[in-house]
Design a protein around this nucleic acid. Structure first.
Length: 590
RNA sequence: GGCCUUGUCGUACAAUGGAUAGUAUAAGAGUUUCCGAAGCUCCAGAUACAGGUUCGAUUCCUGUCAAGGCUACCA
């Protein structure tokens, strides 16, 4: 049991004995005591005084006295300032908690109800390589899965490859027009980048043709629609759905190129999936469900043959679910996929990790799923994350401001190599060990940078100065781990119980370490890895302060040495575990 | 225009309605005969604006201003 829980329990029982009032655990608010005040934890009394019919000062005094008298093993002292009851935890309690952690707790494992969670993440379009925004998605999805797993859930991960649609047709049209049968192999280009280059080419050509049409007197909007290359792409989508052999063949080839390139990137960043769905497979099911929805009168057909849903009663608009030419739109596949995923995984909670520009889309999707009575639709949850922005604003393919995933990863490794060589602490490493280390540090820096911010918020990425290796960063935490391990390589704790008074630095670290299980459940509840990132940083900081202030291997007494060795080990274990929840590895030396 | 999000030290990020609003960076001052200086210590510096709700508001509500997103028979 965590310390906060124990205090809560004690306060509840004393309130009952003094005032004869039964309160619930959630009625008691307990915070950490601010460092300027005496004490470890603070019970807030303001919210209680109405029910207790007394003043905050009186309630604090009465409660404090009872707590110390009746729970001496837990609470050693108290003081009351205004409506704040500050309590000091008994030194022996800290030691007991520490030892419990050593013997009982397996990190990252707790025993909440075992519910089934399905996480869909990554889900890129097959017309270009992955960029920085995808990385935020991938790191978030992977981390959330791990955090849920640590909270006791049965987690599966899926990916939907958006492998059909106008976007891939654009790359295909441009390739047909301009490539002259070139291939990734013939040009020596990473294959997903190769396909992406033609997507960019399409955009350039489209802009050119639109301009010409505007010169002929068309409006911007008309020109955009009527440009021959756009018409060509639209025709290709119709041909694709009709199964025209040469279109299908080209589509298969170009998609294969993209998958081949992604595989490399996914392996690099550690993304993995229990199952990958393909839009080209599931859109058919989606269309069947549109038929079904028409029969159920959930959808309706307009005169031109397009199919719609009217969501005005729910405060939203009318939304198209199938075009007049009979082809599927974006949301059609998601309707089919929702049904399919429930059939195959039966998850009560189904999380979609998708950017917040699709907030509306997912609101609509959930409503449609509920109206169609798709199983599990009530458990659908959009984990909506903010864009990664550059100092120049949003990343734009056309303006060439996209930060490419492969490039940034390479860049991070290079910087890691540079720093490592400068410090010269691992001169005995061989080439493979060095490569492994640069990979660990570089990816660690990148992942930590993207995960340390609340997912809901947009975040800034400044290529020049964003990725730092000092302060609130992955490498700082990795460094702290290596430092703790270095001490432990010299001597391991014996695992004995120790006695004696706690010094402030020791107590601070224990207080931090003791919270870990609580932090995991908070992160799971909020679906927010930044909770873990902030926590593990505080642990590292606190440990470093202790190391600077106190001696471990040459401690004043044998008991102090044992205690601090245990703290070093506990710190290392916690860092290792918490960083794993973020998908970040930690090196023994760096 | 309508709908949704977000405005916190120079910069990047924190703060279930609680004490003097934290942290990191950059700037300034220290700190290596002693367990790893990618560290540690000290020093400065911010809640867009105006109201409201209450014992108490960065947090909740309203308005103004600012930024971003959605408002496609794109995905």
């Amino acid at each position: 049991m965590g310390i906060v829980f124990l205090i809560n329990e004690a306060v509840l029982s004393e309130i009952k004995s003094i005032y004869n009032i039964e309160l619930l655990p959630k009625d008691i608010i307990i915070n950490e005591t601010k460092s300027e005040f005496e004490g470890d934890y603070t019970v807030l009394l303001f919210g209680l005084i109405k029910q207790l019919k007394t003043s905050p000062e009186k309630a604090g005094k009465d409660l404090g006295e009872k707590l110390v008298a009746n729970h001496p093993h837990l609470i050693a002292a108290f003081n009351v300032i205004k409506g704040f009851l500050n309590v000091t935890i008994a030194d022996n309690k800290w030691l007991q908690l520490l030892n419990n952690h050593f013997s009982n707790i397996i990190y990252g494992q707790s025993s909440i109800t075992l519910n089934k969670v399905l996480i869909e993440y990554s889900s890129p379009n097959t017309n270009k390589p992955l960029h920085l925004g995808h990385l935020r998605n991938n790191f978030l999805g992977w981390s959330i899965a791990e955090i849920f797993r640590a909270s006791g859930a049965d987690v599966k991960k899926t990916c939907i490859a958006n492998d059909r649609g106008i976007h891939i047709c654009k790359s295909m049209v441009a390739w047909k027009r301009f490539a002259n049968e070139a291939t990734p192999a013939s040009t020596g280009t990473k294959s997903d980048h190769f396909v992406g280059d033609y997507y960019v080419k399409f955009g350039e050509e489209h802009k050119l043709e639109s301009k010409q049409l505007v010169a002929k007197g068309l409006s911007d909007e008309e020109a955009t629609r009527e440009a021959p290359i756009m018409k060509e792409a639209q025709q290709m989508l119709v041909d694709w759905e009709a199964g025209k052999p040469d279109v299908i063949a080209l589509w298969k080839t170009m998609n294969e190129w993209v998958y081949e390139g992604w595989d490399v990137t996914y392996r690099n960043i550690g993304s993995d999936f229990d199952k990958t769905y393909y839009e080209s497979d599931v859109y058919v099911l989606g269309k069947e469900m549109v038929e079904d929805g028409l029969k159920k009168n959930v959808f309706y057909k307009k005169e031109d043959g397009s199919v719609w849903i009217d969501l005005t009663a729910d405060g939203l608009d009318e939304k198209i679910v199938q075009r007049k030419d009979g082809t599927a739109v974006y949301i059609t596949q998601d309707i089919g996929l929702a049904e399919l995923k429930y059939k195959e995984f039966g998850a009560d909670t189904s999380i979609y990790v998708v950017g917040n520009e699709q907030d509306y889309h997912f609101k609509v999707l959930k409503l449609i799923a509920q109206k169609l009575k798709i199983d599990g639709s009530d458990g659908m949850h959009h984990l909506s994350y903010g864009m990664v922005e550059l100092p120049s604003g949003r990343m734009k393919t056309r303006e060439g401001t996209v930060v490419d995933a492969d490039e940034i990863i390479e860049e991070m490794k290079k910087i890691s190599a540079m720093h490592t060589e400068e410090l010269g602490k691992v001169k005995d490493f061989n080439i493979e060990e060095l490569q492994q280390l640069y990979n660990t540090i570089g990816l660690g820096a990148l992942k930590f940078f993207l995960l340390r911010v609340d997912p809901k918020k947009k975040m800034m990425f400044n290529p020049e100065e964003s990725i730092d290796f000092h302060g609130f960063t992955g490498p700082f935490i990795q460094y702290t781990y290596a430092r703790a391990r270095s001490i432990l390589r010299k001597e391991m704790p014996l695992g004995k119980n120790t006695t004696g008074e706690m010094l402030p630095a020791e107590k601070k670290l224990i207080l931090e370490l003791e919270k870990y299980p609580l932090i995991i459940s908070e992160a799971a509840q909020q679906m927010n890895p930044s909770v873990i990132a902030n926590y593990v940083f505080r642990v590292a900081q606190t440990f470093n302060s202790l190391v600077a202030e106190l001696r471990i291997l040459t401690a004043e007494t044998a008991d102090k040495k044992e205690l601090r060795l245990q703290l070093a080990q506990f710190t290392a274990n916690t860092i290792h575990s918490a960083m794993h929840l973020l998908g970040i590895e930690v090196p023994e030396r760096m």
